[in-house]
């Protein structure tokens, strides 16, 4: 069994069936790109996996853990949080917390979690020790995305590309098993997409499993181990970048690629 297994995910909004039964799998350390035209359901799929939308049907596992089970209707907040934490999600519009500086954006959730894990009885020293570990980790991640000197800046002082790099570092803070990107460069000016794509690419080293919903075909081709082409709520075609771009089989994919190249 693969590291991530997603089975028969269905989702409707009102009468519109957005996902009509999605199955796919991914090995640990692999990078999967999901491509397709707007409205094909790729973002919804990502949101369902991250429990930002509730699936009507479907089941998913990461390793041995169940991360999605639509047959269980009432999840407690705690269960939901545990499932969500298997994934990290980088949003199209960054969604950084504007009132916190870059460093605090990274550490906030981790600190709250550490405090919770230690419980009320924890001594100040223990907590301080955990916080300093968290701080070190944040520094390391900021270095990784090349924003060490921006640690004290506020999101409103950063460019879009810098914001998105902070968002990537923030998503990595809680060490998700799988890091998801929802059109990470769609809100950026063309000249800023490069720096973000570079950071994403640098994460591809076998230790990060990633799912990327993207419109950047060139990037998808370069970075992915596997590509899924979605159309009208189904997976129309999937394969390696060579297969998808070099030898597309379905008419829909052919016409999609033709339009993208145009």
């Amino acid at each position: 069994m693969a590291f991530l297994e997603v089975k028969n995910v269905k989702k409707s909004f009102g009468n519109t069936e957005v996902l009509k039964g999605i199955d796919f799998s991914l090995e640990r350390g692999q990078v999967l790109s999901i491509i397709g035209s707007s409205g094909s359901g790729k973002t919804t799929l990502l949101r369902v996996i991250n429990h930002l939308e509730t699936a009507d049907e479907g089941f998913a596992t990461v390793g041995k853990d169940i991360v999605l089970d639509a047959s269980v209707k009432k999840l407690s907040e705690k269960e939901l949080r545990e499932m969500r934490l298997k994934f990290g999600l980088v949003f199209q519009s960054f969604n950084l917390f504007p009132q916190y500086n870059v460093k605090k954006n990274l550490t906030l959730a981790a600190e709250l979690r550490a405090k919770e894990a230690l419980g009320k009885k924890a001594s100040k020293e223990e907590l301080a020790e955990r916080y300093s570990e968290i701080s070190d980790k944040a520094d390391a991640l900021l270095e990784k995305v090349g924003l060490t000197e921006k640690a004290e800046s506020y999101p409103c002082e950063l460019s879009g590309g810098q914001c998105q790099r902070v968002a990537i570092a923030r998503a990595l803070m809680l060490e998700p098993e799988i890091l998801c990107f929802d059109e990470p460069t769609s809100a950026l000016d063309p000249e800023l997409t490069g720096e973000v794509l570079k950071v994403i690419k640098s994460l591809k080293s076998g230790e990060h499993t990633m799912i990327i919903v993207t419109h950047e075909m060139e990037f998808a081709k370069n970075v992915s181990d596997k590509i899924i082409f979605m159309s009208e709520g189904v997976i129309e075609e999937e394969g390696t970048p060579e297969e998808i771009f070099g030898n597309p089989k379905s008419e829909k994919l052919k016409s999609f690629l033709f339009k993208e190249n145009f």
Binding site: E82, R84, P98, R170
Partner: peptide, 27 residues
């Protein structure tokens, strides 16, 4: 407050309470 702020809190494993008091309230 944009719903994305809540979603960002959620995917970071924060509780509803934490999201309201630590993320949304000051905004």
């Amino acid at each position: 407050i944009p719903y994305g702020q809540y979603e960002a809190g959620m995917v970071l494993g924060m509780t509803k309470r934490q999201i309201f008091f630590r993320v949304v309230l000051l905004q």
